[in-house]
Design a protein around this nucleic acid. Structure first.
Lengths: 131, 131
DNA sequence: ACCGTCTGCAACCAACTGGTTGACCACGGC
DNA sequence: GCCGTGGTCAACCAGTTGGTTGCAGACGGT
């Protein structure tokens, strides 16, 4: 069952759900049981248990044991996986920007035509003449 | 569609796919067209176009226009959304660890008990800090 | 020994994803 | 004008996801 997927994908996917993010947020304040976690939401405990499995598969949480309870604990180190990935490309893109600025700055004006002039254009409402 | 979903979820979900992450990585080095992006993969251009739509909906890329080409440009600022979220809870969890350590250290041994100080099968926290 | 609580597992279902093919639109170059 | 190139949109399909119900297991308290 979806055993594939590299670690990074699993972590990102795990955090792509608001419920799961909220659980992580609450776990950052302290460990909790499945029941505790389920209480605030309008969901069955089983649903929460599934979410928990996703988080555990991503390495974001670990499960303990305390009698019939299975306390959930946040493993914060996995965050590093994401931050290093993100920071790498963010920095790369920013550097590129800076270089581009330098080039433009060092240019006799009026010659900055070719570089992409991407404007945030949401799609223009052209006539949708579906037949 | 899937128009719903908060911004954070969209960004995380967008990066939960290795192909999409790879595209972002390549876009960090410079803008590209859909065709350029599609070339290295064993996928149809339409599939790449779909991926691109996901990235665009997440605000990670913007589209330009250059004749019949639609150059793709990486919008690196959106990364901040994620990093601030991540850093917040990482820090929170780390602080909690530190406080817990202090408490345990200041305790006459053998008195650990209730509240949340569950011991988990996994390794000791507080080993790594920076690198 | 029983009961209640906490949890996991399996089956099922609707909705979403990630891919395909096929048709179509918008250009620029002859 | 017509053609090739670059790209999007729509329909379809298989697999995954996020939820449900129902049942079974493990344990503590009485």
């Amino acid at each position: 069952m979806a055993v594939a997927a590299d670690p990074l994908s699993r972590v990102f996917a795990a955090l792509a759900d608001p419920t799961r993010r909220d659980m992580v947020a609450r776990l950052a304040a302290g460990d909790a049981t499945v029941g505790d976690l389920a209480r605030p939401y309008d969901l069955t405990v089983q649903a929460i248990s599934k979410h928990l499995k996703v988080l555990a598969d991503a390495g974001l949480v670990s499960r303990g044991r305390d009698a019939q309870r299975r306390p959930v604990h946040l493993e914060a180190e996995v965050f590093d996986l994401m931050t290093t990935w993100i920071e790498r490309y963010r920095r790369e893109a920013e550097d590129r920007y800076r270089r581009l600025d330098d080039i433009l700055a060092a240019m006799p004006d009026g010659t900055e035509h070719s570089e992409q002039d991407h404007r945030h254009e949401r799609q223009d409402p052209r006539d949708r003449d579906r037949h």
